[in-house]
Simulated assay, not measured.
Amino acid sequence: MGCCRMLGTEDRAAIMVGMNSGLSQVRTAHLIGRSPSVVCREIARHTGPDRVYRAEAAGQASP
C-alpha cells in the first residue's frame, strides 16, 4: 500500500518549479519523494486549459 500523506504546499511548489524547468514528472516525483502517479494525477487535476499548473489553486482546492 502506498503513502497516504497528502501533497503539501512545498510539494506543489516543487511540482510547479519542476514543470517550469522542463523536468519530467518522474524526475520531479523522485525529487519530492513521491510516486510518479501521484505527481501525474496532481498535474492532471490542476492544470488549466492553457496547460499551466497552478500550485496555489491546487492548495486551495485541497481539504
Rank of each mutant, 00 (worst) to 15 (best):
V17D: 15
G59F: 12
Q25M: 05
V26F: 09
S35V: 00
A13P: 10
G33N: 04
Y53L: 01
S62T: 05
T28W: 06
V26I: 12
A13Q: 15
G22I: 07
G22R: 04
R27F: 03
E10N: 07
A14V: 01
Q25H: 07
V26P: 04
A13S: 09
S21N: 12
S37H: 13
I32M: 08
A58E: 06
T47M: 02
S24V: 00
R5Y: 05
R54V: 14
Q60G: 05
A29C: 00
V39H: 08
A44L: 10
Y53K: 15
S24H: 00
I15H: 00
A55M: 02
E56Y: 14
I43Y: 03
R51V: 09
G18M: 01
A61V: 12
E10S: 13
D50S: 02
A14Q: 07
Q60I: 10
G8H: 03
A57K: 06
G48I: 00
H46A: 12
S62N: 06
R41D: 08
A57P: 04
R41E: 06
D50W: 01
R12A: 13
G8F: 13
V38A: 04
S21D: 12
M6P: 07
D50K: 03
C3W: 13
I43M: 04
C3E: 12
S37I: 14
M19I: 06
M1T: 08
M1K: 03
S62Y: 03
I15N: 06
G48T: 12
S35C: 06
Y53Q: 02
V52I: 13
R27M: 04
S37L: 10
R45T: 11
R51A: 08
R54T: 10
S37G: 06
G59P: 12
D11S: 12
V38S: 15
G22K: 02
E56Q: 01
P63D: 01
G18L: 01
S62V: 05
R51S: 06
R51P: 00
P36G: 05
V38M: 10
R45D: 15
D50C: 03
D11K: 00
A55P: 03
R5L: 13
C40Q: 11
V17L: 14
T9I: 09
A44E: 07
G8I: 12
L7S: 06
R12C: 11
S62F: 00
S62H: 13
V38E: 13
G8C: 11
R41F: 02
S21R: 14
R12T: 09
I43Q: 04
A55D: 04
